[in-house]
Design a protein around this nucleic acid. Structure first.
Lengths: 208, 208
DNA sequence: GGCGATACTTAACGTCGTTAAGTTCAGCAA
DNA sequence: TTGCTGAACTTAACGACGTTAAGTATCGCC
């Protein structure tokens, strides 16, 4: 009796189509500029059909958000260096690359409000997983004496906020819109190094 | 023949009313949730009247943006300490206070795209003025040997990006939406100190 | 072969930014 | 004083949006 299964698969297929089409449209046009009608057009269904799979545009965005957090999480978990400081450098670079390469997705993941954030507390939920990766690195950096002992979440938030700041500026302002001069090409690395340097205990400076 | 002048004054009055009403509405509800009709209602004119003063909602937002940049600039230019490092601490605090106290305005100043940014290059224009204040402090910090000699704009952008990052996280996520734990109460100061510490030459650490 | 559920569409609602087409009225020329 | 002009302002509408009520078609089951 595979009929129910086939139907479920077909339903899942449509859901996937919607998500994929929305993902592509959002990437190129940005969340606010993409309409439910445009998504519907892209998959060759009527707009109403989308509402059979997502209760609202917000719900669709939230589902996309979850998938993006999975993507970010994978992008941040490939071949991680064992040294926590070196690893944090790699994490920062991966995070910044993800953000600047997917600006429109980054925007609704980290720069817009949405209800998905209610689930942000579950360490297993996608939104929290990349934070956990960073947190582990910070923990080890402290244990191994690179960083002064301090509140782990404070330090993790400091690092996150710093990198987020540079990504968010880079994707909000066109280069020519920066005050006075374009963003320095070493900005991402410069900020990462500044923060790491700021956190390292004096004896460790220059060693990693 | 003061008639033309009086008429101009009256026109300016309406423009002011629009800006003030929009400022208040945007502050409490956020830019996207405020409609031209709501602004019109607030000043007891028809929506069409707004278009006699601003060619579009975007233009209205841009005008508001300019005024907000003036406000930010003043908030950042009161009683500045002479020591450049101490001054940067004060600037960071003032900037963060402005952002967290006016989240909705901060959002369209620094987290949304808009055409006003084309004028960002003129150092006299409001958007650039607060950056200039920071840049001067960075310059002096370098001249006085607190910071290693480096590209002034790179360092200014690092500091800006860092503080912007923390402000933008704080106004995007509710405390309970932060991953794992609420934002640490010392986050703003912690990030500021980390960056300053990261920029200071070793001999100057602990001296300011 | 008829029935009920499921998948899907058509057509509409109310709201948005915006605009075309008036209307009103103050100030000026005769 | 009268009639005219132009600026200020409104009414009513347009097209696009997110969303939904109501309907149609199709598929598997009795």
């Amino acid at each position: 009796m595979g009929i129910a299964e086939r139907k479920e698969r077909e339903k899942e297929d449509v859901r996937r189509k919607i998500l994929d089409a929305a993902h592509d449209l959002f990437e190129t046009q940005g969340y606010e500029n993409v309409t439910m009608r445009a998504v519907a057009d892209a998959i060759e269904y009527s707009p109403t059909t989308i509402y059979l799979h997502f209760v609202s545009k917000d719900a669709l965005v939230q589902a996309l958000c979850y998938e993006d957090f999975e993507r970010l999480s994978s992008a941040m978990n490939v071949e991680l260096p064992v040294n926590p400081i070196v690893r944090m450098r790699a994490l920062g670079r991966a995070y910044a690359a993800f953000g600047t390469r997917n600006p429109n997705h980054y925007r609704f993941m980290f720069m817009a409000s949405g209800d998905w954030k209610s689930h942000a507390r579950d360490p297993e939920a996608p939104p929290a997983k990349s934070y956990e990766t960073l947190r582990v690195a910070v923990t080890e950096a402290m244990e191994q004496g690179y960083f002064k002992k301090n509140d782990i979440d404070l330090v993790s938030q400091i690092v996150w906020a710093g990198i987020h700041g540079v990504v968010s500026l880079l994707i909000t302002f066109e280069p020519h819109q920066f005050p006075r001069t374009e963003p320095h090409e070493g900005l991402v690395d410069g900020l990462t190094e500044t923060i790491l340097h700021g956190l390292l205990v004096p004896e460790m400076v220059g060693k990693v």
